[in-house]
Amino acid sequence: MLRDEERRWWLNGGLRLAMAAALIMLPPALRAADPPGAAPVAGAKEAPGDVDPNQIQVPPPPFSEGIFPCTQCHDGKTVKLNTTPRKLVDMHDDIVLNHGPNRWCLDCHSAEHRDQLHLVDGKLIDFSKSYLLCGQCHGNKLRDWKVGVHGKRTGYWNGQKQYLLCVNCHNPHSPHFKPLKPLPPPVPPDQIVAVEGGRP
């Protein structure tokens, strides 16, 4: 007999297979209207100067040390699945969830596939594609990020560029950009002393 979890997985997979089949049979114009999250970042053509997948490198997600893969513990045996929203104790209690009202872990983390995230439509994505998840609510930011206007780009203005993932700058659990200590202010002109022959 199939366990509950497994049954759901098959059901889910089967459904998606059927959907894929339906999509294939659709005329090409309709097929292009993918669900927003499903479009690979490079394929989306809504803005001029869209990112070129061969020119963009994204760094790996900034996991806390030793935390990934999640299935080390969340293997369905060591830690039993509990989908009830609650305050976490013993583990992950250091995470402050300060990201809009009524959020909880499994809104983004997949319960069944712990090493992945899921979009609202149930589609699973890797942590390295987390921008698709963020973009579900922050669509305008995702759009700007793709064209290189939100977030930092390094590398070549006329060639290969490195991007950062949203989560490299914004802690997903508490995304507000943290204040920084400013570097020293300039020396006021009246305090600048020029020494003959320069300083050693």
């Binding site: 001029p48 100067g49 977030g151 930092k152 780009r153 203005w157």
Partner: peptide, 21 residues
Amino acid sequence: CPTGSRKFGNLLDPGSEIRYV
């Protein structure tokens, strides 16, 4: 720039991020 506030590119290239801005 840690906030990604600074954008740079070729003004003559319609696909550049500077033109997008």
